Computed example of a mutant assay.
Amino acid sequence: MQVYEKTLIVQSDDLDELNHVNNIRYIDWVQQISKEHWEKVTTPEIRNELIWVVRKHEVNYFKSAVLHDEIVLRTHIAQNKGPISTRIVEVWDNKANTLLVKASTDWCLLDASTFRPKRVPEHIATLFQ
């Protein structure tokens, strides 16, 4: 399993009225790191032929992050089945080494020219193993 990660510092525009990271920001981060991982591993040719759309997000919130916290986002592909790829994203408090959020997202692979679902090809699946 190939893991992709990045570190962020919580900024004031990430916060909600309770002064912790807004739930919507976590979803934004899930989508951002997913896209970054895809772009890092694939070629421009592959990205011109195939696109991903979200089918379902499931998010579990365990603890809150606050202003200036250093957080680590980690993602990997848990499984592929037909056109669906299940991606896990975890958000960790880097200082306390505590899991803050865990998201599981089902992404549907589409042919970029027809927008029809397409089975995840083996050569794509192996790029993320």
Rank of each mutant, 00 (worst) to 15 (best):
L50K: 06
L50N: 04
L50M: 11
L50T: 10
L50C: 04
L50W: 08
I51M: 14
I51S: 06
I51R: 06
W52H: 01
W52V: 03
V53W: 05
V54E: 08
V54T: 10
V54N: 12
V54Q: 09
R55I: 07
K56L: 07
H57I: 06
E58N: 08
E58W: 05
E58R: 01
E58S: 06
V59L: 03
V59I: 12
V59K: 01
V59C: 11
N60W: 09
N60V: 06
N60K: 14
Y61V: 14
F62Y: 13
F62Q: 11
F62R: 00
F62T: 02
K63P: 05
K63T: 00
K63R: 07
K63W: 07
S64H: 13
A65E: 01
A65Y: 00
V66S: 06
L67F: 12
L67R: 07
H68P: 06
D69F: 03
D69M: 04
E70H: 12
E70P: 06
E70S: 15
E70M: 13
I71W: 00
V72N: 08
V72F: 02
V72H: 01
V72M: 01
L73D: 03
L73T: 06
L73A: 13
R74H: 05
R74K: 13
T75K: 08
T75E: 03
T75D: 09
H76G: 04
H76I: 12
H76P: 01
I77L: 06
I77P: 00
A78Y: 11
A78Q: 13
Q79E: 14
Q79F: 03
N80H: 07
N80Y: 04
K81Y: 11
K81D: 11
G82F: 07
G82D: 08
P83M: 00
P83H: 00
I84M: 09
I84P: 01
I84S: 04
S85Q: 09
S85A: 15
S85F: 01
S85M: 08
T86E: 15
T86D: 11
T86Y: 06
R87K: 04
R87Y: 10
R87P: 12
I88L: 03
I88M: 09
I88T: 13
I88W: 13
V89K: 06
V89T: 07
V89H: 07
V89W: 10
E90D: 15
E90G: 01
V91L: 10
V91A: 00
W92H: 05
W92C: 15
W92P: 05
D93E: 02
D93I: 00
K95S: 11
K95R: 14
K95G: 08
A96N: 02
A96P: 00
T98F: 13
T98Q: 15
T98C: 15
T98N: 12
L99W: 07
L99H: 02
L99C: 11
L99Y: 12
L100M: 14
L100E: 11
L100D: 12
V101Q: 12
V101P: 00
V101E: 02
K102Q: 15
A103I: 02
A103Q: 10
A103T: 07
S104Y: 09
T105P: 13
T105Y: 10
